[in-house]
Nucleic acid binder design. Structure first.
Lengths: 329, 329
DNA sequence: ATGAAAGCGCTAACAA
DNA sequence: TTGTTAGCGCTTTCAT
């Protein structure tokens, strides 16, 4: 049904080689013939066959994106930026999702490799030694986001350690008597990749350890963290701030506190992390840490591009973060 | 670097044809040879070359997804569901975004066609007569979501007309003296596809026209709708309900009202539409209309699959919606 | 049951 | 400047 370069060749009375030269403006061809060929191609509505070209050149001009899911605002926004950057450069994006399931991630990667993508942007949930040996063995340009995997793959993100440290300092600067840190359960510790969350946690403990004067603190990593929270809030009327390792926890905490009749910030302070876009509709404005999600996406693609083109040796990129005060502290 | 079927053939001392028969369990091959070939393939770590297969078979096992962007919760959730459904069936998804720009949409479609996707799920922003003639001329399986395009392409969604009618009735059943309808500006009317929004609007006006007793109403379609809103809320103390054509408007309205010192629902009622997932963190719980976004995604893929496989004649699918009362009315 | 050969549509190296 | 040829890796038809 569709026009091939061979038909153009016949229509112009030249060879396919010549047609190819004209179509891809390669040297070694008469201007006249080139014009003729280009015109006929136009007239016939010629469209190059991508698969055939890819097969011949060994490049597909497509990349794979592997994320947890798109319910997560971070991934949705980042994917958005990646797609935009990619298409600007002629690349298309295969979207795949793992639902945080390590096996799914392996399958996704395997499929993307089978489809001969030119590169992969991965938000890893896997973490084992074997795993990144496997990835290296693929010999495929790959950059990571969301969670660090190993020094062998560029990582684009922020300094989570410092960022959470800054958040902690921000709370320390206020008049609180104790601080609770809420973080996802570590049930999967060691099994799945939670590098970013770990860094945040370390940033918190490190900053707190050096705080003068020292401040009382508790860490909640239970799956059912609201129950754990209730227990801690019972009894003494110590002025408490709750620092959450991500906005989603902070929002749920906020909701939970309201239900329990606590006022924020009068009775209890709450701070999140990520500055997801829905915060603008939440009352009171949540204190949080912001960073450019779109830019992470864009940079990730650009680093991948550098790897794919082999022009420069790409490394990690750390973007700036900033504390947003809000009115919840 | 990678093993081809030819190498397997040589290793087994058979022809490529035989290898193919074994690999794709086709009839006409000795069980012994098949086993031998399968084992060698396994041993050598053979992986079929997707591009080559696609080129030969004319099928790529990939589909294109064309949406506005992923900031929109509807698209993010739907894309999530589509990817899951697709991969379950062995299809991969090319993600492309239009930013509501008609030209971008055309480019996206053109690129997807060039890449020989087997089908497309489109959330159209274009609307012209020429346009769907063009799409038809592609002769490619295509289903639409988000906005209806033409009767020639299956549409998966809800009955927006009835749904907004139900929302209107819900408000009518409460003790309000007037109702304001907030909808996106119609600056683009006729230029871009706003079918869903139109249906909602019609559902509103139709229901209101038949209301007994009649109720005062105003429609706000200004770009700067908060200013328009302020004007209407000045003066008479008529008990007012604000019905928004989507949750995002409702959330912004909510925020605006709070700033102005209005209490919701005591002073003014607010209702949204879509039940986006962030509503669970908003205070007061917003009255809205809910419908299964994931199911739309899944159904869209299934309809597309039916089209691609040519098994059955797919048609439109309308999923159920439901009013959620919330506490904002 | 197996092999041979012709494609799918494009690219690239080598001749002319 | 142009044509020829040999791939890219897999599928499929037709012989054997």
């Amino acid at each position: 049904v569709s026009i091939t370069s061979k038909e153009i060749a016949e229509a112009c009375g030249v060879s396919r080689g010549t047609v190819d030269r004209a179509l891809n403006n390669r040297p070694g061809i008469n201007e006249e013939t080139r014009k003729l060929i280009l015109e006929t191609a136009e007239r016939l509505g010629y469209r190059p066959h991508f698969l055939a070209r890819s097969l011949a050149k060994g490049k597909t001009m497509s990349i794979g994106l592997v994320v947890f899911d798109l319910y997560n605002r971070f991934f949705a926004q980042m994917a958005n930026a990646i797609e935009a950057a990619a298409r600007e450069h002629g690349y298309f994006v295969f979207l795949t999702m793992t639902d945080k399931n390590p096996q799914n991630e392996k399958d996704c990667i395997a499929h993307l490799v089978d489809r001969k993508v030119d590169g992969i942007i991965l938000s890893p949930v896997n973490n084992s030694e074997d795993y990144h040996l496997y990835l290296q063995s693929l010999n495929l340009p790959l950059v990571t986001v969301g969670n660090r995997l190993s020094v062998h793959f560029p990582y684009i993100g922020i300094h989570d350690f410092q960022a959470m440290g800054d958040a902690t300092k921000h709370i320390l600067s206020k008049q609180y008597a104790r601080i609770l840190y809420i973080s996802p359960p570590l049930a999967y510790e060691g099994k799945t990749n939670i590098h970013a969350q770990e860094q945040r946690f370390l940033g918190f403990t490190h900053t707190l350890a050096n705080a003068v004067p020292a401040m009382e603190s508790h860490v909640i990593r239970d799956t059912d963290y609201t129950t754990a929270l209730d227990k801690l809030l019972l009894g003494d009327g110590k002025k408490t701030a709750i620092l959450c390792s991500s906005d989603v926890f902070a929002l749920e905490t906020l909701r939970h506190l309201k239900e329990k009749g606590f006022r924020v910030p009068e009775d209890i302070g709450v701070m999140g992390f990520d500055n997801i876009d829905v915060l603008k509709y939440v009352e009171p404005p949540l204190a949080t840490v912001t960073y450019p999600m779109e830019e992470i996406g864009r940079s990730a693609f650009e680093q991948l591009l550098a790897l794919m083109e082999g022009t420069e040796k790409p490394g990690d990129i750390f973007l700036d973060h900033r504390v947003i005060c809000g009115k919840s502290l």
